[in-house]
Design a protein around this nucleic acid. Structure first.
Lengths: 158, 158
DNA sequence: GTAAAGATTACTAATCTGGTAACATTACGT
DNA sequence: ACGTAATGTTACCAGATTAGTAATCTTTAC
């Protein structure tokens, strides 16, 4: 079971959170931490990374905070993943074919490359405006398994 | 960069090797090890696993060896991957949604699920008969970057 | 100048990974 | 029966990675 790391998971929650607010809204890291159940100390590093990559824009100092650097529709899940996992690559030989001495005749390598591209294309097709819309829809539709503390937390944050 | 593990990589080479031989051919682990550049000690555990999962069939004792348990066309890359990585799941919440307290309202979870299914479908569409055919084609076409020890090794093994 | 915010770095404990080795089991041949 | 050739199983190790914590630095509004 190869999965994305916690950082990537948290990062996607953070971006989703910002995408769910009014466009241009700016909030503090501590705020996101409490509402999205992410260890506060983590947020700083993650946000720092996301802003270095151009996904978030931060303002330092008192009164500062965090916002999306671009419209949510222009931020894809692929970008967020790659910010923490590096360029997508299901096997080492996808990035550096020379690392495998058998590469010249290896058809499995082609399969890894194909799978990697497939996955990347899918993730590139997911943008956070669409994702945020789905969350928002919850408030109107029939709320599933209502009443949990977590659910109330999220709703309050919107 | 989340990648498959070495075990999975080696496993795919092993299955490919067997798929490249005449149907039903049986060879020893040591033989595969030397021809496919896999640490000999590794092969046993990997083969053992692959046979437990029903991909390979082994015969113990003197004169024994390893063979495909089924026609290569019926063995997919997904099976091999899952034998070592477990059920495909790009994030923990794909397997066990209850593990994330925010899951009820989390649209990103849906994205992870979608991406996982997409990837799984791709890998399920790759079978080793097709892969082996591609290797074989090398012997006829114009050999690229010829003359390497590795290449000669592979050719000899076919 | 002080307090509020993000930026950066260092550190730890736990887990995972790749790899090695030793030993156990099975079966064929003589 | 015994020896040998083969797979099966287990234990072990060193290094890397991961999740998480904490301390400190830098910027900025008031």
């Amino acid at each position: 079971m190869f999965t994305i790391g916690r950082n990537t998971d948290y990062a996607s929650r953070i971006v989703l959170h910002l995408a769910s607010l009014e466009p241009g809204a700016r909030v503090t890291a501590a705020d996101i931490a409490s509402r999205r159940l992410i260890p506060a100390a983590f947020i700083r590093r993650i946000v720092s990374r996301l802003s270095a990559v151009g996904i978030l824009a931060t303002v330092r100092g008192s009164g500062g905070g965090i916002a999306l650097a671009r419209p949510a529709a222009q931020i894809t899940l692929k970008e967020v993943v790659e910010a923490f996992e590096g360029t997508l690559s299901l096997n080492g030989c996808v990035e550096s074919p020379e690392s495998c001495p058998l590469a010249v005749t290896c058809p499995v390598q082609q399969a890894w490359i194909g799978a990697t591209h497939h996955l990347a294309a899918y993730l590139a097709g997911v943008n956070f405006a669409d994702l945020a819309r789905k969350t928002y829809g919850l408030k109107r539709g029939s709320p599933p398994g209502n009443g949990s503390a977590a659910l109330r937390l999220i709703k309050r944050s919107l």
